[in-house]
Write a protein that binds this DNA or RNA. Structure first.
Lengths: 218, 218
DNA sequence: ATTATCTATAGATCTATAGATAATGC
DNA sequence: ATTATCTATAGATCTATAGATAATGC
């Protein structure tokens, strides 16, 4: 998983640099896990370093405060999520279809990328305030769709929050009852959200049933 | 505000009891304010008692822990909110109309009951896990509407979370830009949420435009 | 020799309680 | 006399740092 990481990435990285990066990543991963477990930023630094299996003092080699760690963790997760959406959206220009793809990819995170899904359910709607991920892309799509007369909803920000609420609800149901959420359930949510945006029901159904690229092993 | 409080409520309340109740209420109000300010449960007990203008030790006359105070505060706020919805819903039996009324009353909280609105935006989707308020009522309405064939959305819990997300987004926009949200904006969100549930667009528009009782001075 | 990690600890902060003070009851 | 509130503080917890240890570079 980590061996071939810098295959094409960082050309000049000594073993010391790699060790340092590994410790940093262990702290970030621990923070993501703690957020997913609902411990959020209430965990003490000691609890974090223990979860990361790292000496207590090492924390300060990488971060000045818990807030800084949690922000770095949020950025890392949202960066991966955003790139996943962009890859799945390549070549699409219709805002309604772009919105549908972002939604459908995100609803599938529960089984394709459980770490991202856990982070999101642990963060809740506050994820909307972190730059990156689906939020800025969906906001852009909603505004473009409104300008193109494809969506009729008057306030893009409110619509975005409703979409986020629906997706978080779905991810949370999947966490608690994994059998209850499958691809069909995700696509039905995407369809419902398109109706919320003002897309006529038959067109919403069509958009939610288009082909999607596989993202499981990204 | 507090003088005529026990007019018909508690018949046997000594002055001592009233003083005790006032201190308890001051702590609860402070907790609600702190949650609204985003300090959440990260505030120390000292910070809470200072915000309540109450001696530090008095805290433990009323609560064993911060968690207990925040739970009591949540119950108190959600109880008021729920009763408001019930009064506005009196006499209505159509689940779609009940859902619309609950949504429209809640969207108006920003100016009718800023304390409840602030608590809700500070709590986020976690409010769904607290018994009371809109959530159990809306869940009941969504399930009844599904059973009656009035809604087509497959999972009531996910739909509820989307509705909560939309309402929280609206309340948050109102907090930041009060001029941007008026009654029309609230009713447009209710209409959009009804479309999400599967109500045909013209019927959704009708339901969101029905008469509503005044709730400002409740 | 250099750099990162780890262990140990001082100082700050926070919780919970004990005892003193103030308000109410009778 | 009783009850609630307030002030002061002991003990626990948490943060930030200093110094020792271990890993890597040359």
């Amino acid at each position: 998983m980590a061996e071939a990481a810098s295959a094409a990435g960082a050309p000049r990285a000594s073993r010391l640099d790699r060790r340092k990066a590994r410790t940093r990543q262990a702290l970030i991963d621990a923070a993501v896990r703690l957020i997913a477990e609902g411990r959020g930023d209430r965990a003490s630094i000691q609890e974090i370093t223990e979860a990361a299996d790292v000496g207590f003092g090492s924390f300060y080699n990488h971060f000045d405060s818990k807030e800084q760690l949690f922000q770095a963790a949020a950025e890392e997760v949202l960066e991966r999520w955003g790139q996943m959406i962009d890859r799945a959206s390549a070549g699409i220009s219709d805002p309604a279809e772009l919105f549908a793809v972002g939604t459908r990819i995100t609803g599938r995170l529960g089984w394709t990328h459980p770490d991202i899904a856990g982070f999101l359910t642990g963060t809740g709607l506050d994820a909307l305030d972190i730059p990156g991920g689906l939020a800025p892309r969906a906001l852009r799509d909603i505004q473009a769709g409104r300008a193109a007369g494809r969506f009729s909803v008057p306030d893009a920000e409110i619509a975005l929050s409703a979409a986020a609420g629906g997706l978080l609800g779905l991810l949370r149901v999947h966490q608690r009852h994994p059998g209850r959420i499958d691809e069909a359930a995700v696509d039905q949510l995407a369809e419902a959200l398109l109706r919320l945006l003002g897309v006529p029901a038959p067109e919403a159904a069509r958009l939610a049933a288009l082909g999607l690229p596989e993202t499981g092993n990204w």
